[in-house]
Design a protein around this nucleic acid. Sequence first.
DNA 1: TCATACATATCGAAC
DNA 2: GTTCGATGTGTATGA
Lengths: 231, 231
Amino acid sequence: MRLLIADCSVDYIGRLNAHLPLARRLIVVKADGSVLVHSDGGSYKPLNWMSPPARLRIATPEESGAGEGVAESWIVQHAKSDDKLVIHIHEVHSDSEHELGVDPGLVKDGVEADLQRLLAEQIHRLGEGFTLVRREYPTAIGPVDILARDATGGCVAVELKRRGDIDGVEQLSRYLTLLNRDPRLAPVRGVFAAQQIKPQARVLAEDRGITCLTLDYDEMRGVDDSHTRLF
Amino acid sequence: MRLLIADCSVDYIGRLNAHLPLARRLIVVKADGSVLVHSDGGSYKPLNWMSPPARLRIATPEESGAGEGVAESWIVQHAKSDDKLVIHIHEVHSDSEHELGVDPGLVKDGVEADLQRLLAEQIHRLGEGFTLVRREYPTAIGPVDILARDATGGCVAVELKRRGDIDGVEQLSRYLTLLNRDPRLAPVRGVFAAQQIKPQARVLAEDRGITCLTLDYDEMRGVDDSHTRLF
DNA sequence: TCATACATATCGAAC
DNA sequence: GTTCGATGTGTATGA
């Protein structure tokens, strides 16, 4: 990994054109050829970048047709498309190279898959007497997150989201339309379950006769003793 | 901006929990308190991060309950939520501070707005004899990208995307439902136009009687002479 | 390789 | 402030 602090102007030419005027910035060149250009603010998204795999070529200012004051021009070419990042470096304030090695990678907990596993194990949270039919119940347009039966044996399709917005309700509606065409299942009720349900999504869901269920992940994880808080 | 190359383990505790085992990484601390943890690969997204505004506090290993070999523990606390990033630093290989100043910001050209402008100018791409009613036609649930009339005077609503997926079809369906309640417009047909339309989206669109139209942005831009390539 | 679904998304504009 | 829509979305997973 190479780290550069430099006064530079940057142009991206590809799916769109984007230009950065001359300013002092951080430039990161990774081992896979990807490049990030960061300012001292914003969030984790760089001002401009090139995705891997890419190749960095250093051109003279004459070759790149750069203007006054350019010491070096970097041309970062994406390996599989015409996307190109051109960095005109005016002045370098810091330049260093570091060996990092391969990263062991990130371990996540609390994503939708975890919610689904917990709700399947704690299916009673849907209501008294509910039983699990199966997770990822397959349909022609994709798998339903959870299929269950209520106390009276009626079929219930559950769409699970971390954050419940209008798209999730639409998705569940499509599944319900399909499932209700199956005489072995119909009538199928819908439950929209999420850690947080947006008001607009709740209105749409209830308008379509879909039940909304807010899930408390911490509480559900508390019941399941295989997890402990990290900090 | 502070740049650190260090052997570290990292934990994010917030909307979910995420853990990074001990390895050598780049740590960037920005002026607004945001922190990025990058490996020497992947893309522009850090392995772990904290969004601004945030505050960095350095704790002793005893205080943070860190294990063997930890020299310093950084606790990065988000200013407006309970999100927290904890970095246990084992060994520092490089540590530097740099003044960058405020960035003048990015100038973009060629996003969906341009695609919309081009299609409005080249409305014949919808079909022979089409005429533009207006762009951003207002409805109660938001503006329709383009409203047009076909050769027979029939009303046509166009939803425009760079990448056409199922969400775009749902969005257009909502507009069509609403527009068809207006007796001055009904019946209104739908056209789903995108640079690339996903198979799943195409199936759903055609199931709902919506016409799909794939747009060639380069060709449309070629007709329009107000754009020139930068490099 | 391609298609699909999820994400600590981020970012900007409209309201 | 919040919500909605776009993003050069990125990333993992499964067919």
